[in-house]
Amino acid sequence: MKAIEWFTQVLEVLAALAAAPLFLAWVNQCRAWLSNRSAPSLLQPYRGIRKLFYKDAVLATNASALFRIAPYIVFGTMVLAAAVIPSMGTRLPFTSAADAIALVGLLATARVFLSLAAMDVGTAFGTLGARREMMVGFLAEPALLMVIFVASLICSTTALPAITEHLATESLALYPSLAFTAVAFTMVLLAENARIPVDNPATHLELTMIHEAMLLEYSARHLALMEWAAALKLFNYACIGFALFLPWGVSVGQGPLALIASVPILALKLALAGGGLALIETLSAKLRVFRAPEFLATAFLFAVLGLLVHLLLRA
C-alpha cells in the first residue's frame, strides 16, 4: 500500500513536469491566435529545452559556485512545489505537507536564489533584473498570503489539500470574498510569472524586462533548467488557483486509478485557464515598471477587501 502511494506521487510529479512546457506552449499558441499571428507548435518549448540540453555550458569567468547550483535549486524547489500542490489528488504522501504558508515560503526560496544568481556575475542587467524581481516579489507575496488567508478563514485550515476538499465537497455557496480573492490571485499570477502587464515574456528589450534579464548569463543545461522551472512555476500557480477557486474534480481517493480519473478534468481546467490568461495578456498593455507597484497594490487591495467582506458578511 505504501509503495503504491509513493508510486502515485512520482507519477503525479512526472505528469506535472511533462505538462508544464505544454501549458506554456498552449498559452503562447492562444496568444498568437488572438493577435492574428501564426502560432508556434505546441512542442516548441520541448524542442527548446532539448536543444539547450545538448549544448555546452559557458560560464562567466567570475561566476561562483552559487551561479552554477542556482538552476538546480530553482528547478528543485519548483518540482517540490509541484509535488506538494494538490493538483490531481489531495491524498498523496507529499500533499500532507502542503501548508499554504510553507508553499509561499518555498516559492520565495526559488526567487531568492534566482536573484542571487542573477547578481552573482555582476553584470548591470542581471542586477537590474534581480532588483525588479525583488520589487515585484515583495509586493506580490503579501497579496498572495492574503488570498490564502481568506480561503483559510473560510475553511479554518491553512493546509491546501484540506481547503480544496472542503470547498469541493460542500454545497454550492456564493462567496463574494472568494470572487475578490480570485481577481487578486490572477493579478499575482501575472506579476509572479512575468506575464504581460508587468513583464513581457517574449521580448529581450532591456529597459522593460525583468525575468529575462536575470537569465541573460545562463546558457545550455542551466538555461534549460531555468526555463523549465519558469514553465513549472506557471503550471504551479495555475494549480494553486484551481485548488483554491476551482476545486471540483480533484480526486480525493488513493492510488493511481483515482488519479487518472482527475487528469482529464485538470487538462480541461488548464486549457480554459490558458485561454483566459492569453486573453488577459492580449487585452492589456505592458505597464511601465514604475506602475507595477500600483498594479500589485490593487491586487493586495482586492485580497484585503475579500478578507474584510468575509469577516463582515460571514453571518
Binding site: 456564493l174 463574494p176 470574498s177 470572487a179 477587501l305
Partner: peptide
C-alpha cells in the same frame, strides 16, 4: 438563503465599485 447570499454579493460589488471610482 440563496437570495441572501446574492444580496451579500451585490453589497460586496457595491463596495468594489466604490474602490473603482476612487482609483
Amino acid at each position: 438563503a440563496l437570495s441572501l447570499q446574492m444580496l451579500d454579493a451585490l453589497a460586496a460589488l457595491l463596495l468594489l465599485l466604490s474602490f473603482a471610482m476612487l482609483s
